[in-house]
Structures are given as C-alpha cells and as structure tokens.
C-alpha cells in the first residue's frame, strides 16, 4: 500500500500542497482529481522523489519509501518525454535496465509491450518518426516496462483517442487486478467515475474529499425523488425533510431520517398514484462541484 502522510510543498511563499494525506490501496484504481493548480502534479512528483518534500512523508508497505522502492514503480509524468532520436525498442530496453531489469529481460518485456500496442513493426524506428498517438503508446509502455509494483500516472488519458482511452483503461484495470496500487490523475470525471475504485479530490493544495466512489456519493445528504400523478406541492408541509425542488408532479427532497421516507411515500399513495420514489445518488462530477465550490 502506498500512503501519503501530511505531504507539504512550498514554492517560495506559495504553499502548493498543504498537509495532504491519502492511501492508495493494493489492487485499487485510485483517481486523483482536482482543478489546474490544485497540487496533483506536485504531489505525484513528491511521491516519485522527483521533487523534494518540505513536510510529511510517503510510505510504502508500512515504512518510509526508499529509492529502491521508487525504482520499482512505474511513472508517467505530466510532461511526456522520450529520446526523439533513439529507436523505440532500444529506448524501452534502456528504461527497463534503469529500473533494474537485466538486458534480456528488458528486451523481452519491451518486445511484448510493443506487440500488445501494435507497434512491433515500428520497434526499430526513431520515436520522432511515430505519430503522436503512437508516441503516447510508447510512453505508456515506458511506464510499465519493468513490471512495476505500483503505478503513478499523471494525466494518462490526456491526448488519447477514444480507442486508446479504452485500452489504457484496460491496462490500468489489469494492473489493479494483479494487486498493484494505481494512482492516476485526470480531468475527465466521467472516466474517473467509470474506472475508479477510490477517489481523492484535491482543491487549493488540500484534500477536500477522499474514499471509495460509493462512500463519497453517500457522504452527503442522500436525496430522494418523488414523481406522483398530480402536483406535489403538499410535500412542503411534511415534517422531517428539506425540499430541494418542486416542479409540478416531481419533488426532490432531503430526508432527515429513514422513517420520514416511509411517511412521505404513504402520504403520496394516500393522495393518488406514485410513479417513482427513488434515492438520487450524485455523480462524481456533482460531488466534485460540491466539494470544490
């Protein structure tokens, strides 16, 4: 498990990351969400040891993280980069060896990854001769070349076409299934909602919400929607609930307790037909807007 404890980083007077704590559990896809300047990249850079930590610590397997631990991580920085003039295969082999793989192991892993990404026939081509999409695929291969024990990916989906987004998502799920903790940042909230087991929402350098998607959705007051056959203006008079919105036969309410729900439904049925009475679970986007507002 990767643990981030009270991480702090200043740039001059500005505190970019302020006392940030969260966990990335083994086998969990953890989405890292936040606006521009929220501190996601700074946090990821501190996790990877690329940026000095001004306060707090990063822990791996219950102890402070070491250089050797980080060497076995897979990392994709926000600013992508490869040697433009080096052939694709050589480059992946080089990165694999920097991660501690033997030359033959790195070569085997690189060849398999290129096959997987449909780039086997481009292995000897220079990176700069590849299309941007293919360069992006090589970049992904570079992050996972050395069979990483954890993945830290900064905006792995940016710049990918829809098909590549799907195969990237598959790859992340595959690593999570193998027990690898995966932390990735993204602006695409729908994608995060679809993919993630857990979420960390960052705003202004602080964690404003974190937990599994389900926990987050139910953390606020759960709302219910009532759709009846007739006008439902009467709900305003029902005690034990807060009316969020009433529009003809539809009402959106926040129940203060379980019993009120039963009372509301009974009352509605007494007055006529009920077409719908359901819990309204907010989307991740809605939660995000709420906590970052």
């Amino acid at each position: 498990m990767l643990e981030v404890k009270n991480l702090t980083r200043r740039f001059g007077e500005h505190i970019a990351v302020d006392d940030v704590s969260f966990d990335v559990a083994d086998g969990r896809l953890t989405g890292f969400v936040g606006g521009n300047g929220a501190g996601k990249t700074t946090t990821m850079r501190m996790i990877m040891g690329v940026l000095a930590i001004h306060g707090g610590e990063v822990r791996w397997d219950g102890r402070p993280i070491t250089t050797a631990d980080r060497q076995s991580f897979g990392y994709m920085p926000e600013e992508r980069g490869l040697y433009p003039k080096q052939p694709v295969l050589d480059q992946l082999v080089y990165l694999g060896r920097l991660h501690g793989q033997s030359a033959p192991a790195a070569r085997a892993a690189a060849t398999e990854l290129l096959e997987r990404f449909g780039l086997a026939d481009r292995a000897k081509d220079k990176v700069e001769s590849l299309s941007l999409g293919n360069q992006q695929r090589v970049q992904i291969a570079a992050a996972v070349i050395a069979d990483p024990v954890a993945l830290v990916l900064d905006e792995p989906f940016s710049g990918l076409d829809p098909l590549a987004v799907d195969s990237m998502a598959d790859l992340l799920r595959e690593y999570a299934r193998r027990g690898v903790p995966v932390l990735f940042s993204s602006h695409q909230l729908d994608l995060v909602e679809r993919l993630c087991d857990a979420l960390v929402i960052l705003s202004g350098g602080h964690v404003v919400a974190s937990g599994t998607a389900d926990e987050l959705r139910r953390s606020g007051r759960v709302r219910h929607r009532l759709v009846a056959g007739d006008d439902v203006g009467w709900v305003r008079d029902v005690p034990g609930l807060t009316v969020v919105d009433v529009d003809g036969p539809t009402a959106l309410v926040e129940l203060h307790d379980e019993a009120t729900g039963t009372r509301l439904l009974t009352e509605a049925l007494r007055r006529g037909s009920v077409r719908e009475f359901a819990e309204v679970v907010p989307t991740v986007s809605e939660i995000y807007r709420e906590v970052t507002a």
């Binding site: 040891g49 990392y75 920085p77 992508r80 990165l95 920097l98």
Partner: peptide
C-alpha cells in the same frame, strides 16, 4: 525532450 523526469524518477 522532458525524459529527464522519467529518468529522475527511476534513478537518483
């Protein structure tokens, strides 16, 4: 080429 960040993450 910005690869330095990948290198810096992999090795001191």
């Amino acid at each position: 080429s910005r690869i330095v960040e990948i290198l810096a993450a992999a090795i001191p």
